[in-house]
Design a binder for these strands. Structure first.
Lengths: 349, 349
DNA sequence: CGAGCTAACTGAATCGATCCAGATGGCGAA
DNA sequence: TTCGCCATCTGGATCGATTCAGTTAGCTCG
């Protein structure tokens, strides 16, 4: 009893009495054969249950897999719950999809500087928010196209928003209200973990060239211009952009005595700002009267509640689209900086 | 000038004066050759810049790609922002990763019942929350393993939680406080879009066998037992489990005159319940005094605010892990129902 | 009529591995 | 010494397509 082997293009060709090349063309280049024959081939294929050319064989022969890998810095659990990463991914997926490509999802966290099996067959890599020192980058096939998003890889195109100017702008706006005690809540600045208040002086020590560093520089510039010494403005670090991780740090800030509690918090993400907003309200603090808050990102959640969040809006979906277009070669692969928009809400009018 | 062709396993073998089989074994079956030779091969590989066996060729030859596809019902934009889907994905990713597999992400929304190119080379499919009638299911390779999550595919293993009993339980708990006007907020029940109030009588019409239907049946059973006629209990549909889509519907409910506004809302998801909570507070309604709320899922966000949400906690990460284990053959592929837990918060004590 | 052209189709090499079925050699046991 | 056995290594068929360099037939045109 012969095993009912999967039917191949060759079987189909033999069955029809045509060459394999012709069958291949029937599927891939309709203009290379007469419509009648093509019709006959497709009909026979359906009859025999042939599901079209095998993707594995095709990818070996053509050298292309029609797979684009997206490598995220953090764990998937984290990234998937982050509105910004999610938006980026959906922008990527939108373009890939329209071009018949698919998305392979990888997290730098869980791979030990070695690409897992199939990842190396991707046609291109979109790498998001890694620390530039990440060794993983070296294990990627050097000839494959790569786009870095929200960080830089030497010799490769990268996609950014204008973090420094945007943060300068929103901080300047916030400082125009002449707060007495401004404070800053950072996202992770370095590869090393750090959650909580930062000792003045150590603050930029070892900070790699990341978006958080740019944002911080923007804040500092505005503080400086407003007559505050950036070196003594209190600053806290949040290791992971989640409610769970940021809540304890923020609670500690809000529970400071009235004379020490900041009356303005410049936050590096909307997630953090919204957490602060919720926790402040729980404590009976009025926003913006007792506490002014600014965010960064412009996620939807911040605009659907009262008070609406004052923030810098960036279009992460578009960032994802651009990254995908560059990887697919639909757009010249060169580094770009996308514009942002100051978004005046009620949390810091 | 010859193009610097990529170095292959065969080149490496020639260079070393050994057979290709031996080089292959050096990478895949260390026990099949002497440690000394293996060392020599790996050393030479590194020296020549050989990055290990080509994934495309390997997958053709072995028939396995080490890729598992996850197919989500909704668009990626939606799914990635949904805490439950995200948890599922991270459970899947956790197991895949430990086994050297990678995750291909697909959305049923954007593929027109045709698998995009590379998707057909996946070694298995985890399909999440589709409508059972989805034609897409037929385009999947029939011999590949498949696990359905939160819905059923005939002849295939599926993963569920005990939706009906869980909803019966939480509804019974909520009804014990003898609310005058209970109401229900559904997630999408049918393939057809519907957002807003549902005409009594039409409610289950055409509802496919999905988890939302099971949940609704659980609510109805409890209502019936508590002396409420399920047929006249008001019910609203939410098409998409997001703040943006649910907010208008919920606002309409909350803005009903006092004599009509429900004093208990049984919600099919925490996302909806939390939206209702936020909007209720904005209107000065006290929870639970003026309005009791129950959710479903047990997402973290519901437990980090006051009042904490009363809900049914399900372990979506574990659901993802199980699905992945079944797909990889680490666990026998049979349908399972996972347990849930009634979680008493303050929104309906 | 025959040269030239085009549309339609063919044969076979090729992509880069994996993995049988065997070859080889060294060693211990009878 | 001879046999068998084990560890180690080899040759070559194979996976299922794509693609290049033709061949064939039919048609046009001077």
């Amino acid at each position: 009893m012969p095993t009912p082997r999967r039917i191949t293009l060759k079987d189909l060709a033999r069955e029809l009495g045509v060459s394999t090349a012709t069958v291949s063309n029937a599927f891939n280049r309709p203009d290379q054969l007469s419509p009648a024959l093509r019709e006959r081939i497709l009909g026979e294929a359906k009859r025999l249950g042939y599901r079209g050319p095998d993707a594995k064989a095709r990818s070996l022969r053509t050298g292309r897999s029609r797979i684009i890998a997206v490598i995220l810095a953090e764990s998937l659990t984290y990234s998937l719950n982050d509105a910004v990463a999610s938006e980026l991914l959906s922008g990527v997926a939108e373009v890939l999809d329209a071009q018949g490509h698919t998305l392979l999802l990888l997290s730098a966290r869980q791979m030990q500087s070695e690409l897992p099996g199939a990842a190396s067959m991707a046609d291109g890599y979109i790498v998001y928010g890694l620390m530039p020192s990440e060794t993983l980058l070296e294990s990627l096939p050097p000839q494959a196209p790569l786009v870095a998003v929200d960080f830089d890889v030497t010799g490769r195109p990268s996609l950014h928003v204008d973090d420094e100017p945007a943060c300068h702008l929103i901080a300047r706006h916030a400082l125009a209200s002449r707060p007495r005690r401004p404070g800053i809540i950072n996202l992770r600045l370095t590869a090393e973990p750090c959650n909580g208040p930062i000792v003045p002086g150590q603050r930029l020590l070892g900070a790699e060239q990341t978006i958080t560093r740019s944002r911080l520089l923007g804040f500092h510039r505005a503080l400086d211009e407003a007559g505050h010494d950036p070196a003594v403005v209190p600053m806290w670090n949040i290791e992971e952009n989640t409610f769970e991780v940021s809540a304890p740090v923020i609670e500690a800030i809000l529970d400071l005595p009235d004379t020490e509690r900041p009356d303005l918090l410049l936050c590096m993400s909307d997630r953090i700002a919204l957490t602060a907003l919720t926790l402040a309200e729980e404590r009976g603090l009025r926003v913006p009267e007792d506490l002014r808050l600014t965010g960064f990102d412009g996620i939807a959640e911040g605009q659907y509640r009262a008070p609406r969040l004052t923030t810098v809006r960036q279009d992460s979906v578009e960032k994802g689209r651009q990254a995908a277009r560059m990887i697919l070669g639909l757009e010249a692969p060169r580094s770009r900086t996308l514009a942002t928009e100051l978004w005046l809400g009620d949390s810091c009018p």
